[in-house]
Every structure is written in C-alpha cells, then in structure tokens.
C-alpha cells in the first residue's frame, strides 16, 4: 500500500501532463492556421515546436499512468485522467482568452459530475 502522498502527486502529475499536451496542441494549430485539406497544413503543424511539447506530454502521462495503475485503483485514476478538463478550461480562458456562455459552463459542470460518477462505479472497468 502506497502512501497518500504518492497518489496525490501521481494524479497531479497525470493532470499536469495531459494539460501540457492539450495546450501544446492548441498552440500548434494556432501556428498552422485553420485546417485545410493540404499536406502543407500538416507539415506546418508537424514543424511547429509546440507539437513536440504535446508529444512529450503524451509520453509523460503514459509513464505516469502505467506507474499509477500498478498501485492505484482504476476508478480514481480514471477520474484524474479526465479531470484535466478543469485545468485546460482555466488555462484556455487565461492564455487564449476563450469564453464559454453560462449554458456551456453548466454543460462542463455536468460532464465533471459524470466523470466523478463513472469513477465511483463498482462495475468492472474496461481497463481492468
């Protein structure tokens, strides 16, 4: 049985890496501009620096996930891996100046509630 601090640090690391990935993705697309069905668009994305930040974030969250799952129960781990929604939302408001209307914020709250419900489910989790 690992200590409480192990879990808290682990779940925080997971959320951090996932947040880095999504923010980097957005930066990469800002660099390449709006999608067009051309190889040059993809090349612009793949040649931008932030896309490698996203890949590092992926790698980090993969390693953290695998380490956590050796000890942590799947329910809370599942929740933590999806609650990056909250951090990404906050950062996208501050960094990208994005705004959600009140109905959308209500929707986001409903999703967070849904993820918490799923993490508390007693049924066998697909990942187990």
């Amino acid at each position: 049985m690992k200590s409480r601090r192990f879990y808290i640090l682990g779940f925080a690391a997971l959320a951090l890496f996932d947040t880095i990935t999504q923010i980097s993705f957005k930066f990469a697309t800002l660099h390449a501009g709006e999608f067009s069905l051309q190889l040059s668009w993809l090349r612009h994305v793949l040649l931008s620096l932030p896309i490698y930040g996203a890949m590092l974030g992926y790698l980090g969250s993969f390693i953290t996930w695998m380490t956590l799952l050796k000890h942590a129960p799947i329910g809370p781990a599942f929740a933590a891996s999806h609650l990056e929604i909250i951090t990404v939302l906050l950062i996208s408001f501050v960094v990208f100046g994005e705004r959600l209307n009140s109905a959308q914020l209500l929707g986001a709250a409903s999703i967070v509630l849904g993820v918490i419900c799923l993490s508390m489910s007693k049924a066998k989790h697909p990942d187990e």
Partner: peptide
C-alpha cells in the same frame, strides 16, 4: 461488443456527460 457491465452509477455518469455535451455543443 465485449458484453461489459453498465451498472446504474455508470449509466448516470454517461447521462451527465451526454447532457453536458449537448448543452455545450448546442449552445455554441
């Protein structure tokens, strides 16, 4: 496809997510 269990808690959770997506997407 794999006959995995969907208990009550899971159905409630999925419903909250669908409602949330509909609210956010529908009001975009």
């Amino acid at each position: 496809l794999f006959a995995e269990q969907l208990d009550g808690m899971r159905i409630v959770g999925m419903s909250f997510i669908v409602i949330g997506v509909a609210l956010a997407g529908g009001c975009a």
